[in-house]
């Protein structure tokens, strides 16, 4: 196949973004008339010489309720540093709830309850004496909808976490940290000349990368991503996926995604969540991404990853 899409294909997708993104190509799967946009998997970088950073995260028998309704049943999942974990499954299967349990955002919803343990490097984050703010500082989160503080400048957005957690840092170190985080989030070159602009003035994809930079600035050991690309166009999606590949060995990443291809591209471990009609959700199958997609043991997983889900 040619590197560049043909003119006819360019017309199918947005003509404004396509010529600048040669890796975006359009394929038509046989038997389907839908146009599917695929994105090349991001290049994986080698394990850095200073070793793998990030924390072990262990969910043990996690159940969750919203009021009387049980939405998650006995989910156990081990998430290792250096491994990107993808949580996949249809809407309403509890994967976002599970993600929000990992940094104690779940309990901010009125009526939300949970059972089980979440161990961060062996310590239960719900244990007595554990501070909510400390947990959230260590376990960062990127949301589905880009949510920078719209009136704050780009710089202030990145530094917001430091200010909010009362972390004192001198001007030089602060400037260095801001540049480092924006670089790691793949945004530095685009915003270096307008760091004083409002965070809300960026495009959607840039806003999401700003949110990643903001999450990285408090130096978390785990980064949770809740469908970070679902509101973004293909080229922004690709930038975020590159960022995930970049960060893989620095911070343990757990990503919720509806997009099978994305899960296959960015993750090394996958967990398939499913909620039967009227039942709480749970993990059907978890394991290496290659195996989950190539040789799933459970028929339901096979149906889902092959798009035969009714």
């Amino acid at each position: 196949m040619n590197d560049r899409p043909t003119l006819a294909e360019l017309i199918e997708i947005q003509p404004s973004s396509a010529p600048t993104a040669p890796t975006v190509e359009v394929i038509r799967p046989s038997g389907s008339s839908a146009t599917v946009t695929t994105i090349a998997p991001p290049a994986q970088r080698p394990v850095p010489s200073q070793g793998i950073r990030g924390a072990h995260l262990d969910a043990v028998d996690v159940s969750a309720w919203f009021g009387p309704k049980k939405v998650l049943e006995r989910v156990s999942l081990s998430m290792e540093p250096g491994v990107v974990t993808a949580l996949i499954g249809p809407s309403g299967c509890g994967k976002s709830t599970f993600l929000r349990i990992l940094n104690r955002m779940h309990e901010s919803v009125p009526g939300a309850q949970l059972a089980g343990e979440v161990r961060l490097d062996g310590v239960d984050i719900y244990g007595p004496g554990q501070r909510l703010t400390d947990t959230r500082k260590q376990v960062g989160m990127v949301f589905q909808k880009p949510n920078p503080f719209p009136t704050m400048s780009i710089v202030d957005n990145v530094a917001a976490g430091l200010r909010l957690t009362g972390t004192k840092i001198d001007r030089h170190a602060r400037a260095e940290l801001i540049e480092r985080c924006l670089t790691r989030a793949g945004l530095w070159t685009e915003v270096r000349d307008r760091l004083g602009d409002a965070g809300g003035a960026l495009s959607g994809g840039q806003q999401q990368r700003l949110c990643i930079a903001r999450a990285l600035a408090v130096e978390p050991s785990v980064l949770l991503m809740d469908e970070p690309c679902s509101a973004l166009d293909p080229s922004s999606t690709r930038r975020i996926e590159e960022t995930i590949a970049e960060l893989r060995y620095d911070v343990t990443i757990i990503i919720v995604t509806h997009n099978m291809q994305q899960a296959a591209r960015v993750s090394q471990q996958s967990a398939f969540f499913l909620a039967e009609q009227g039942q709480p959700g749970g993990v059907v199958e978890a394991g290496e991404t290659e195996r989950i997609f190539g040789d799933p043991h459970d028929r339901r997983t096979a149906d889902y990853v092959h798009g035969r889900f009714g």
Partner: peptide
């Protein structure tokens, strides 16, 4: 809500949410 959650997820206290989201 999504801005409140942004502040909370960064490890903000309630006062942090008030300062960074609610008051502005």
């Amino acid at each position: 809500l999504h801005e409140r959650e942004a502040a909370l997820a960064l490890g903000a206290t309630r006062w942090g949410v008030v300062r960074s989201v609610v008051l502005p």
